[in-house]
Computed example of a mutant assay.
Amino acid sequence: MPNPIALAIFDIDGVVRDVGGSYRRAIADTVEHFTNGDYRPTPTDLDQLKSEGIWNNDWKASQELIKRHGQASGNAYTGDYDAIVDYFQEQYRGKGEDPSQWTGYITQEPVLMTANYLNELAKGGVPSAFFSGATRGSANYILRQRIGLENPILVAMEDAPGKPDPTGLYMTVKHLEKSVPPGLPVLYAGDTVADMATITAARAEFPQRRWLGVGILPPHVQTNADYQNRYGDTLKQSGAALVLPHVEQLTASAIGTLLEQTA
């Protein structure tokens, strides 16, 4: 690797993989199931909830949507948090713990990033890692089995508090700094308000370092130009220094330009 210029850390859902037909579908299935078929949230409903910046955990997001619909409709829906998690996981992952036996929506997720892209980033002086609210098993499934990464640096749900708490971001940076000089600018690429809030929180806590949020437009918002523009504006208002329609447009050259523009 040439002299490194920055660290690139990636969220996974909506950035590395398209979860429109998997995680988001599992949320809708779960809410519909626990509201006895009375309510199935739309993609817009899910985006509105996510825009609040505190519902990065999809199990808790499902629980919150069930709760809100119950309050709005005057119904007292049953189903505790553990039951919600179990049902969600059966839809998303399938039954069982062994990834080789998974049959759920996870097996159908389109991949948005290649190993070659990460290699080119490294050649351009930008080492990379991953910080995600996904479970470690789910994240490794896409990184190792689908993309083919041998030993990715990953901080997952089990390792750190949920976003927008920046603890997991700091942990990821610490892993990267085992092989690069300390203090390099950090870019965090994510697709939600919580992701941008995470980088904003890091900047507030450690202003002596450069922290840059890069918004990535998830595939489901790119089917409508107006919706795409509104979504991008929301990411910018939440702290994104740059918004891109595809993560692989965040090249080493683009990162160098962004660093110059924000110096």
Score class of each variant (00 low, 15 high):
Leu154Ile: 15
Tyr188Ala: 04
Trp102Lys: 09
Ile216Arg: 01
Thr262Ala: 01
Ala139His: 07
Phe88Ile: 09
Ile84Arg: 03
Ala156Trp: 07
Gln108Glu: 14
Gly96Trp: 10
Glu64Thr: 13
Ala61Cys: 05
Thr167Glu: 13
Val247Cys: 08
Tyr170Met: 04
Ala156Met: 10
Phe10Lys: 06
Ser100Met: 02
Gln228His: 01
Leu118Lys: 03
Ala122Thr: 13
Gly215Glu: 05
Met196Ser: 08
Tyr188Leu: 14
Ser238Gly: 15
Glu260His: 09
Asp226Gly: 05
Leu154Met: 10
His175Lys: 15
Gly183Asp: 04
Gly53Asp: 10
Ile12Gly: 00
Val247Asn: 01
Arg209Val: 06
Val111His: 03
Gln249Val: 00
Lys178Ala: 14
Gly256Ile: 01
Gly21His: 13
Ala202Glu: 03
Leu169His: 06
Gln71Cys: 00
Ala76Leu: 12
Leu244His: 03
Tyr105Glu: 12
His220Val: 10
Thr78Glu: 12
Gly239Ile: 11
Gly213Ala: 07
Asn119Ala: 14
Arg146Gln: 15
Ile84Met: 03
Glu205Thr: 12
Met171Ile: 07
Gln145Glu: 15
Val16Gly: 03
Ile66Asp: 04
Gly213Phe: 07
Gly183Cys: 11
Ala225Asp: 13
Asp159His: 12
Leu121Ala: 04
Phe10Ala: 02
Ala202Leu: 04
Leu258Pro: 10
Leu187Asn: 07
Asn3Thr: 15
Ile255Glu: 02
Thr198Glu: 07
Tyr87Asp: 03
His69Ala: 03
Glu158Ser: 07
Asp82Arg: 12
Tyr23Asn: 07
Arg17Ala: 14
Glu177Gln: 15
Ala28Val: 12
Asp38Pro: 00
Leu184Asn: 00
Val15Gln: 04
Glu248Met: 14
Asn224Pro: 03
Asn116Gln: 15
Glu52His: 13
Trp102Ala: 09
Pro110Asp: 09
Arg203Phe: 00
Gly168Tyr: 06
Leu212Gly: 00
Val155Ala: 02
Leu235Met: 06
Ala241Gly: 03
Asn57Tyr: 11
Met196Cys: 02
Pro43Glu: 11
Thr135Phe: 08
Gly232Leu: 09
Ile5Tyr: 01
Gly137Asp: 14
Met196Arg: 10
Lys174Asn: 11
Ser138Val: 12
Ile199His: 02
Ala197Tyr: 13
Asp86Lys: 13
Asp29Leu: 05
Thr30Pro: 08
Val221Lys: 10
Pro99Met: 08
Tyr105Ile: 00
Ile147Asp: 05
Ala254Lys: 14
Val186Gln: 02
Pro245Leu: 09
His246Arg: 13
Asp233Val: 03
Glu97Tyr: 04
Leu154Pro: 05
